[in-house]
Write a protein that binds this DNA or RNA. Sequence first.
DNA 1: TTGTAGGCGTTATCAA
DNA 2: TTGATAACGCCTACAA
Lengths: 336, 336
Amino acid sequence: MNKPRWQRTRTTIKDIARAANVDPSTVTRALQDSPRVKPETRERIAGIAAELGYVPNMAARTLVNRSSGLIGVVIPDMANPFFAELGRGIEDEAAKHDLRILFHDTRGVESAEREAVQLFLELKVDGLLVPMARSPQDYYGGLKAGVPVVHVNREEAKHHVTCDTVAGSHSIMQHLFDLGHRRIGFVRGPAGPWREPKMFAYRQALEEQGIAYDPDLIFTFDGTLDSSRAIAEEFLALTNRPTAVFAWNDVNAIALIHALKDRGVRVPEDVSIAGHDDIQLSGCIDPPLTTVAWPMYELGQQSVRYLYSLGHGNEPGEPDVPPPRLVVRQSTGSPA
Amino acid sequence: MNKPRWQRTRTTIKDIARAANVDPSTVTRALQDSPRVKPETRERIAGIAAELGYVPNMAARTLVNRSSGLIGVVIPDMANPFFAELGRGIEDEAAKHDLRILFHDTRGVESAEREAVQLFLELKVDGLLVPMARSPQDYYGGLKAGVPVVHVNREEAKHHVTCDTVAGSHSIMQHLFDLGHRRIGFVRGPAGPWREPKMFAYRQALEEQGIAYDPDLIFTFDGTLDSSRAIAEEFLALTNRPTAVFAWNDVNAIALIHALKDRGVRVPEDVSIAGHDDIQLSGCIDPPLTTVAWPMYELGQQSVRYLYSLGHGNEPGEPDVPPPRLVVRQSTGSPA
DNA sequence: TTGTAGGCGTTATCAA
DNA sequence: TTGATAACGCCTACAA
């Protein structure tokens, strides 16, 4: 292998030391605002550092400090604005602890998830945040490697911060029951562990109402617009159509509503549609979408706090996160 | 400062060397699949490494190699799905060059942008990708530091990959003219350098048609839903309303359409609305949005290629990126 | 095919 | 208040 050498040489503390006529160790102290350096020396060194355009070498620092001050966040899907708010919560909380955040996208691909974890482990991050992981068990590898790992919304994981998915989905179902619906369809998402809680809530809610589970009312969304259209077709093909559908998420719900309207089905008059996530545009479509909002920002904050205590040897208690919130708009109504 | 020590000790090549009864340098060679190591030794070492859960220390590696194999990407706004596709292009192209991608979000805040660049510089990334920067001139600091920097869509930057913003916006204006519009409003975005090209295209297009620029028809969008609503109110307050509005982006356009419909204005019968970006949901609203699509994926790819040549000492030629593409849907029509 | 030695940039410790 | 030194984990000559 003859890997290309991108890097050119750069100014180091040695260069500064030479220019300032002091020892490198003095430069270090000066740059760290140590009290053990004469103020005027500090000034002089700071000036020279600035002049020379000095940038600390984190590799060297990490090597000797055995800590990078970095938190790695494994993002399942950058395209989903759902995760952006989580990121903000993470960033804001991280700033309070002098931690810096690095993101790596995986597009929901399991192998990419593994590579992301590997990358962060090599980087010697101080902690790993893994929202909606495909494979939580794998990350115990991270733990074994001595790096604290906190999962977001994966209750099976050893360390996790979660909001009550089941309760959120249950509240949607309850809302539909309250409107008088008895025959309710459900759109499940792409294969993966996250599929379960919503499906569980769906079936549980039906059971509570004494309604039999009907596999004909289960549709599958793969994340694409085409898939939402296909669901609309499936819906139309049904002889005994549901009066309401609980969609996988808002993107799915919005596309579904559009496809149904295109095919002459009125929402909510002919069928009620509910979503999940409450993305920004959910209130701007016609009809505005009934959905359930998650406290993503708080989840982000809590996950960093949890990680921080973990990293400091404290076994943190169960973090409490506000519950999902039902947002009733006009895409749901009483059945005809 | 007594910074906390998160990190526990971990297995290094020394541990492997000890367990395998060889010298650390042999371990290095074995792990690098060097031909200068006996196959069976390689096997044995690989086995032990796996067993011990060895994770390479990138800090040490970067230090000696003087290259991290990392590309830092400064993301202006994770919440904007517009950037997700760019990220994909970047990732795919980077993979071809054995480069790993790291993202850092800035929320469009200038100071955060600076911090992101600083972080990446400290990390000794092999290159910096800065889409839609607030302050390109600052990044010449990166260049001075010996790190190649490529801007995406900032023509003023020394090294940049751009698609023809002006042409894209111009095609929207032309489309509106073709429909017969003469009085066209424009929504400008949040303050920043990116504001200019669209505004320029708007004015230029008017001029070409011999239409006088009317400041009353300029609205301002700050990124929030409230702001879109406010624009709807401003529009209604106008005595001589425009027959078409070129919105800042799709999110703005969608929110604006919603707000207008809410207030009894029909789109496109009473007013045509055009957007910019062609986000996934733009085709799913009522009416489906006329907009202009950017080749974000290609921009991502090209920017990495450009960066790669830069890093290898080649001054790359102007990269060519497909032009923006007008997407005509139903939110625009002929004026009444 | 393997071992030895030196150094990458920074910091902590100890000595001056 | 400052300087000298060793060490962090890994890699590359060079020697054996």
